[in-house]
Design a protein around this nucleic acid. Structure first.
Length: 405
DNA sequence: TCTGGGGTCCTAGGACCC
DNA sequence: TCTGGGGTCCTAGGACCC
């Protein structure tokens, strides 16, 4: 794509309050009001006989969910994503609560990405509502630092979806990710290396992708609160406190250095299903309930594998106890599988290795060491038998263990 | 009023092989 | 004869991200 030393132009595009904004397209009467998305259970708006709608209020919620998004009006009340819904209800009891509708968000996600791809095809997916775009090869982009392309992208996204986004355009992914946040919502921020001291160094360390709650707390304890503080620290000081890899990365990052490429394709590493119970369950007293949920998770996981065309060689479980501590166990099988019963059996073996005296709040099942079905089935037999006709083939769900080779 | 669900990557110890 | 070193796989936990 580019050779070292050549100029790169990378965009980070982030949809503004994505889930909430999609919901406002459906419920335009909520525009301007504090609205939050999340919860979990049924709190679908109710349409009254006169055509008006009755919405669920945050104060009416009971349960263990968290918020996934909030509108800017709700954020002004101190209510943010990842906050427990019950806690949010304390802060903004009158805010409107809408249930999540991932299918709809995925539909809009495909729409905005398709619109971007028309202009700049070199895209890295970073989840449902953000992407990196390599603009280096977009004709004319380098002439004005990407400003014209940036405006064009924003217009295209709005035209395709009716939604606004914020874009940062800089020489690398690290700076673009930070830049896209500087003028949210509906922002377009261009930065060069020369802007780092004025625009990047004043930012809290926590703003950097890769500096989470633990690292920022540790940095603060060392007196380093902003990106500029980290930039001013001696590299060996950082290495001493954070290890060779992370220490060096912190130093490079604080100086705006990042050589990562925009990755247009990647294969999944694992696929999983997990659920948090409405109340904590005990392995003995709630055995039947737990067992049913456990099997259901395995069946769903097998379905996900089949639908996506993968088989797994390592099956794992995850438990979260009532004290919020979690443990994982996994088991590598002799061959890849996508069979629900095989997954259930392996997960059951894993479960035997866990002390179950505490009550559980979460149970999960994970399929790792994935292989594409097409890479697995083909080499099974030599000489190659004629492939079975699709309608004669057993449902994938019923296939036993796959032999590799 | 405790904190969802789906992921990735890194570290580290032990097993096992050469 | 009491002790090397590298490579890879497996497992567990944890930080972090959307």
């Amino acid at each position: 794509m580019y050779s070292l030393g050549e100029r790169r132009l990378i965009a980070h595009l982030d949809m503004d309050a994505f889930y909430a904004s999609v919901e406002l397209l459906r419920y335009p009467d909520l525009r301007g009001l504090p609205v939050v998305i999340g919860g979990g259970r049924r709190h679908q708006p109710e349409t009254l006989p006169d055509g008006s709608r009755r919405y669920f209020r945050l104060r009416d919620y009971t349960g263990r969910g968290v918020l996934t998004t909030s509108t800017y009006e709700a954020r002004a009340l101190g209510v943010f994503s990842a906050m427990g819904t019950m806690k949010a209800a304390q802060l903004a009891p009158g805010a409107i609560l809408l249930p999540v509708d991932f299918d709809e968000y995925r539909r809009y996600s495909r729409m905005f990405k398709a619109a971007v791809r028309e202009i700049a095809p070199h895209i890295e997916d970073r989840g449902i509502d953000e992407i990196y775009i390599d603009l280096s090869d977009v004709p004319g982009a380098l002439d004005d630092g990407g400003r014209a392309v940036g405006r064009w992208l924003k217009d295209a996204v709005r035209e395709a979806t009716g939604l606004s986004c914020s874009i940062g355009i800089t020489p690398n992914k690290l700076l673009s990710k930070l830049a896209s946040e500087l003028d949210k919502p509906d922002g377009l921020t261009l930065l060069g290396f020369e802007d780092i001291p004025a625009r990047i160094w004043p930012l809290a360390a926590r703003k950097v992708n890769g500096i989470g709650p633990k690292a920022s707390e540790k940095l603060a304890a060392l007196g380093l609160r902003t990106v500029g503080d980290i930039a001013a620290a001696q590299p060996d000081f950082l290495v001493r406190h954070f290890g060779a890899n992370y220490g060096r990365w912190l130093h490079d990052t604080a100086h705006g250095r990042d050589q990562r490429e925009v990755v247009t394709h990647s294969e999944p590493v694992s696929i999983s299903r997990e659920t948090t119970f409405e109340r904590d369950l005990h392995a003995v007293r709630d055995r039947a309930t737990l067992s049913g949920i456990f099997t259901e998770l395995c069946v769903e996981l097998a379905g996900d594998l089949a639908r996506k065309g993968y088989a797994s060689k390592t099956i794992g479980i995850k438990l979260r106890f009532d004290d919020f501590k979690s443990v994982t166990r996994d088991l590598t099988l002799p061959a890849h599988t996508m069979d629900a019963r095989t997954i259930r059996r392996a997960a059951g073996e894993c479960l035997k290795r866990v002390d179950l005296s505490r009550r559980l709040r979460l149970l999960g099942v994970r399929a790792g060491a994935l292989a594409r079905l097409t890479d697995l089935v083909a080499p099974i037999a030599a000489p190659e038998p004629p492939p079975p006709r699709a309608e004669e083939a057993a449902p994938l769900y019923e296939l036993p263990l796959f032999a590799q080779h």
